[in-house]
Structure formats: C-alpha cells, structure tokens
Design a protein around this nucleic acid. Structure first.
Lengths: 248, 248
DNA sequence: CGGCATGTTGAATCTAATCAATCCACGTGG
DNA sequence: CCACGTGGATTGATTAGATTCAACATGCCG
C-alpha cells in the first residue's frame, strides 16, 4: 500500500470506509468523485471552533487531529484523536453548530468536502448514507469506551486500553503493523484525554516501560506485550466494529 | 398535556422527535403508523444484553432505563439515563450487535419497533431518517458532556451539571416544569454514571442541600437555585440541541 | 547557541475511595 | 399493630490514587 500522501485524497476516505464496511463498485465510484478543497496546516492549529457553523466536512489526509472542549481555569477535555481517513466533524452534516473545537496535533493536510456534495451522495446512495451514520455510531461507541475508562478504570488500565484502541484503529487503515504505530501525542494531550495530570501520565508510562509492556520514544509506540495489555485493560475490540479483514 | 400512559404509544415517540425538530404532517403520519409490540417490565430488568443482536428498537413508553457496561470485580459504568420517548438502542439499526447492556431502573413499559419498519420509514421519508441520525448525534454530544464531567469537573460540579441536563431533557418532553422533576435514581446508580462512589455522592448531595441548591426526596428533585447550579457547573444547554420552543 | 516545549522526578497535599457501622423508610407477615 | 427484613441513605475513620507545586533535564528548532 502506497503512503497516504501519494494517494488521491478520496482514496484515503475510501480506505477508511472500507475498514468498517464493504462497498460496491458504484458506491466506491460515488465516494471517489466527491469534490474536495485541500488545505495544509501547522501543528496545534484550530480547524473548527466551538460555535462555528460548518458547511463542509473535514477529512484528514495527513497528520493527526483531536476534538476538545475548554473550561474555565484552563481545563481541557479531549474527546477523540483522529488519524488519516477520519472525518472528525461528520456530525456537522446534521448538527452544523459546533459544541466543541477541532484542532491539529501535528502538521496536517485537511480535505474540505461540501455538505451539499455529501448530502447528494447520501441521497443517491442511501447505503453510503447508512455507512456514514454507522461511522458516527462507532464513534459514539468509542466515546462510551472512554467513559468506562474515565469512570471505572485505573490510570494504568486506562492508558493500556487507549493504546490498544489506537493501535487497532491505525492497523485497520494500514498505518500500523507488528504492534508498532506512530504516536505523536504529548503527555499533556494524553492527560487531557484521560482526565489525568501530565505528571501522573508520566509516572504510569514509566511504570509500563518498567514492566516491559511498551516502548514509547520519539513519537513511536511499540506494544511489547499485547496480550498483557489487553488483559489488564480488559480490552475487547468489538466496540470498534472493524471489518474482519482489517481487525487484528 | 395528558399523562404519557394515556397516550397512543407512537404519540410518545412523536413528542420526543418534536422536541428536537419540526415535522411535517406527512412525516408525523408516517411515524404514527409504526407498528409496535408493547411489553411491561419490572424495575432493574435487563432489556438487552451485551452480545445480543437486535431486530427491534426499544421505545420507552413509561418508566426509566439506563445503558451500562459491567467490568470485572463488579465495577459498572452507566452511559446514559433514558426517559419516556427515548429509544436507547436506536444505534442497533446500523450496529445490531450490542456492546453494552440496557436495563430498566423503574417499572416500565417498552414498545418494540421492528428494524424493518424503521428502515422502511427512513427510505420513504429520508428527512425522518436524518432526524433519527440527528438524535444519535445528540446522544453522542451528551456522551461528550459526560466525558468533560468525568475528566475535568469536580464531583460537585459534575452532579450539578447532570441535574441541569436531566431537568432540561424532561422539560423538553413535558415531564417536568418549575425546576421540579422526577428522579427515581439511587445514589449507587448516580455513582456508576459519574465514576464516583455512592458514599461520595451522598456527601456531595448533602453539601448541595446544605447550600440550598437542591431538594431531593422521595424520587423528586427540585433545583432550588438554577442560576447557581448552571454557574458552578458551567452548564451550557446548547449541546442538547433542543428545539427553541422546548428549551428552558 | 539559545530558547522553549516537553519530559522527568521529588515532596507535600488533597480529593475521593474504601471499609465498616448505623440509620431510616417502607413493606410484609405474624 | 408491631416485629422484622430489606434496600437505600448516612456517617465516621482510614487509606490510596492522583494532584499540585517546584525543580531540573532533555531535546528540538531557528
């Protein structure tokens, strides 16, 4: 598989959709002909702000992004991390007013697809519409998995669970294999995603390294003890609803 | 407005849908003619279990329900509370395999609507399909709001935020007014929803009573100091995306 | 090379958890 | 009518996990 940057922008979307469902040739063609305006962004740039009204959906062509909300006193909660192929504001199709922010984590390229084109696609190909709906439902399932972590898992279990989830998501779209994946996320970002402090994240990561469960260095994560990680975090990949051909 | 129990089952669904959007007569009629099998259940009965495959969606006609997941060592995370008009497994339309459980909290009546009928409805009335999609997206927005609470709010703020949310949701479908609403939820349930212990919930509730912010007795909640509650919890109702006519 | 973001470590503190006992409201049966 | 059982609520004492504050190290980029 060629690197994402060499691919046609819509091919990236197709690869993502085919990681969660099987498409017919007609559907593939319809997706592939979506119009798209491409923009390059630096790291830590807001793509969309709370209160903004969307007229486009944002497809990540390169780099990483996250969704988050700011509270008073500088507190921040990150809701999700997004990789190549994700459409972090797909929900704007039916809820145009953003109730949270989207920002890049790394340098990134974003493809903007007009809502009108996506609506036409769902009208002409209801099964693709159903697939997009399904994608937002999988996202909700991931939210629930994070809720379990924040509410009822220890910091250690929670981090292990997140790493398993992110690895499988990347593996499903060909961005990872052999229990190695890119992880260009600071400990502060991780803390804001899991509801912990950066200091505590640091200590737990040290602990995980000490137990030889992970290696995490220069933005590369290696899951050295997959079975141990899924055991301690009670990780069950069902909720990701990945196509069998893609699932680990 | 007559009590829900006197209404036609589909009227309950209509009232809910009209709390988040405006329907045409044709759409109303189509929703009203959905077939439904009604079942009565006692309190704390599972409606759906993790791993089950749904062929129906469950409409709550009477009583309260919740969605939850069980972990080892008896830990439980509740994802959502559901009231009359809610369809807690709407997502099963596109993800039939349940990755969590649904159970009643109180005695309840449930209407089962076949997936086939709902699919036909979304085919013949795409705008109703879009509305159902929208409802699942609002639910995801509520998940995000809970994530903020679990990750970045104090127990006090979190409980205040939840009470504001639940009051507005009930008010939107005519189940509450005057800052009073039913709240037939045990402190243990609240704890499992917010990621806290029952003991701590108890202490925070005592504190909130002491500050004259709430009254909570015999399953009835009164928000005695609405402005104070929304201030301390930084509550912004936008994420509920209620129709203006229904919003507080 | 300097500057700044990120990562690391220690010590003190605190919020919330844990464990355990008691209380209370309510329904039931003798 | 009252004793009893039960589920839920309340309280106290103690502990633990995570936070906070502060200092220092590392590493990357211009």
């Amino acid at each position: 598989m060629p690197p994402a940057s060499d691919q046609n922008p819509t091919a990236i979307l197709l690869r993502k959709l085919e990681s969660i469902a099987i498409l017919t040739d007609g559907e593939r063609q319809a997706v592939a002909s979506l119009p798209m305006r491409v923009q390059s962004l630096g790291a830590r740039q807001d793509i969309l702000r709370e209160g903004d009204e969307s007229r486009h959906c944002c497809l990540i062509l390169e780099g990483w992004a996250c969704r988050y909300k700011l509270l008073s006193a500088g507190k921040r909660q990150i809701f999700s991390f997004h990789i190549v192929g994700d459409v972090p504001n797909l929900q704007s199709l039916h809820i145009p007013d953003a109730d949270h922010n989207i920002a890049t984590l790394t340098k990134a390229r974003i493809g903007y697809i007009p809502h009108d084109s996506l609506r036409a696609l769902t009208t002409n190909h209801p099964s693709v519409g159903a697939l997009l709906w399904r994608d937002t439902l999988i996202e909700a399932a991931i939210f629930r998995a994070w809720m379990v972590g924040m509410g009822r898992r220890s910091a250690f279990e929670q981090i292990a669970h997140l790493f398993c989830e992110m690895y499988l998501k990347m593996q499903a779209v060909g961005l990872a294999e052999g229990y190695r994946c890119p992880m260009p996320i600071t400990q502060a970002d991780l803390a804001d995603a899991l509801g912990l402090t950066p200091v505590h994240i640091n200590r737990v990561l040290k602990d995980m390294r000490g137990r030889a469960m992970i290696t995490l260095k220069s933005d590369m994560l290696v899951l050295e003890a997959w079975n141990e990680l899924i055991r301690v975090s009670e990780f069950d990949p069902t909720y990701l609803h990945l196509e069998a051909r893609a699932a680990g």
